[in-house]
Write a protein that binds this DNA or RNA. Structure first.
Lengths: 355, 355
DNA sequence: CTGAAAGCGCTTACAG
DNA sequence: CTGAAAGCGCTTACAG
């Protein structure tokens, strides 16, 4: 077998992939001029531009992403690093990022990681050396993983963290006000007459867990109440952990009238645990969640929760990265926002009953 | 600012990314020899090999993925195309594929698509022209999307389909025996004394929906029973569609004693719908699902369902692609398996009660 | 067993 | 406004 078409390396193909050289030849210009037109650079005679565009269309020309990345300063590649066990969260993050990267002609490389992998630093260093990324997006718990942060900083790749807990100045950041959100949910419970409120904490590696507890505590204090330690149980953001935490809670001699779980999955665990114990939700006990996952309306009673605009946060994160990358080309200095705080919403449904 | 290290393009960096040239210089050989060692090619004196390896380690050399892909016949890039609304499914698929691609030094490009997008063909054609993929993996419903198949075939990219319905010979295929699985679940119901069984069909774009109905029908026939059309309701694999289908079912003058839903999410919808209507599961009505999503043990009663090894199927799909790619290098002809059928398992839990 | 040369398809830096 | 040359970091094809 031998090559039968430009760009073809030894096997027959129906499609002739054309290159910048083909377009230049057809348009009767140099490849540099084609490059200018394709990249929307100035200083091309309108007439020439048109000629090139026509040729490009006729040949269905698409710039080769690999060649472009290898030759240029940009790779058109964004990396998404995560280690989050909640599929719905990961999925929304991916969708948000991809929506933005596609708009900009970028591609996404997903890189699930194990945050406790002893080789994590080397893994990431190798990855970043192998494949020049224009930017990296980190989601919790990696947003606060020192090993990951060091590896990325060492590689000098711009990155944005979603919902980090520490050192917001260390990178670009996208988040919601978790403290305020938890404050509002707790106040909502208080407004319904609940004074005895249990709390299921999230995974301690996630900043959100601490922030939400903070908001919970502040809301109680604002009404002259204080946290009852025996009603605060440790969870890990999974259904099972919520279930177990609730079991411990329900074993207390005195019971709260409401439970605020740090995320929806744990709230489902609480509801299941209560149901097992013959405690009706919300008649005997109210339950509040956080996140508004799709499942929140797939159970009865429908869960009252905080809606977090996850997809939008991911979109914003990608946006910051792309903005930075383009700026670098034209100006070199970047005085753009380093942080963006998106808004949340308290969604009232059926899992809370006034006392 | 000026370049201060090899491979550095005008901005300061802590990390010196070294290239094949650096390694060659340090080892005192040509870049071709380094290439041989790095790619584990034969015909290198053991002594030379060692020298090169040492140099590579000292410089933390990692072959540049872009350069490698541009110069060579392989791109080390696999694409995953999907349009599946179930996050847990997508997540498992991604994990399976990534596990295999990482083992082989490949990278994954995820490409969520809208299967009814009128521009789908052009979108995919453009993508495949821009970015040379070594292989593509398709999941339902794209596995049977004619537009997608044509675009990929036209680009002459090897691909494997997961759980396709039609033309298994058209590509490499990974699946389970959906007919048999549904047959077994239905038989299980029959064994428990249920003769009156309702069926909630899945999305008609998914082959699994038809296959599972087929198995359902065959199992009934095998016992001399036949399908009662008024107990077969159309669903679309979502919770809501299961809920609505169940409402229609429960509005029938006569009710089945069990319902077999084509996937877990619809089974949850059926359970919710029953609960709303004051029908207890499994006391008054048994429910069976399909997939064994994590949520199956997050509800009460725990769902009896079919476990599908999704992650493994994805791994196998990637495996086929990589095997094909390597073979192409060495031999050119491929007499490997074109299809792989993985095993499923019926998981008995609490949503079915003997009649 | 080893290497020199050409080339992958672009962008960059520079000249005019 | 346009282009010729060099180069990105590798692999391929070939020579010895």
């Amino acid at each position: 077998m031998k090559a039968n078409a430009p760009g073809n390396k030894g096997f027959t193909s129906n499609t002739i992939v054309s290159t910048i050289t083909d377009v230049a030849r057809l348009a009767g210009v140099s490849i540099k001029t084609v490059s200018r037109v394709v990249n929307n650079e100035p200083n091309v005679k309108p007439e020439t531009r048109l000629k090139v565009q026509e040729a490009a269309v006729r040949l269905s020309y698409r710039p080769n992403f690999l060649a472009r990345s290898l030759a240029g300063a940009r790779s058109y590649l964004i990396g998404l690093f995560y280690d989050n066990p909640v599929p719905a969260y990961v999925n929304e993050i991916q969708r948000g990022v991809i929506r933005r990267t596609r708009e900009g002609g970028y591609h996404l490389m997903i890189e699930p990681q194990n945050s406790h992998d002893p080789n994590l630093e080397r893994t990431i260093a190798t990855l970043l050396a192998t494949i020049k990324l224009d930017g990296v997006i980190l989601t919790p718990p990696l947003s606060d993983n020192e090993v990951v942060l060091r590896a990325i900083e060492a590689a000098n790749v711009p990155f944005v963290r979603i919902s980090p807990y520490l050192n917001p100045e260390r990178s670009m950041v996208v988040c919601i006000d978790d403290v305020r959100a938890a404050f509002e949910m707790t106040s909502h419970l208080l407004d319904q007459g609940h004074q005895d409120i249990g709390f299921i904490a999230g995974h301690p590696d996630h900043g959100s867990s601490h922030r939400r507890f903070e908001g919970f505590e502040q809301a109680l204090k604002a009404r002259g109440l204080s946290v009852r330690r025996e009603w605060v149980k440790q969870g890990y953001y999974s259904f099972e952990s919520g279930f177990e935490a609730a079991q411990a809670l329900l074993a207390e001699p005195q019971l709260p009238t409401a439970v605020f779980a740090c995320n929806d999955y744990m709230a489902f665990g609480v509801m299941a645990s209560a149901q097992r114990a013959g405690i009706r939700v919300p008649e005997d006990m109210s339950v509040a969640g956080f996140d508004d996952t799709p499942s929140a309306t797939m159970i009865w009673p429908h869960l009252t929760t905080i809606r977090q605009p996850v997809e939008l946060m991911a979109y914003a994160a990608a946006e910051m990265l792309l903005a930075r990358t383009s700026l670098k080309d034209t100006q070199g200095n970047l005085d753009q926002d380093l942080g963006q705080k998106l808004s949340f919403a308290l969604i009232e449904r059926d899992s809370i009953k006034p006392l």
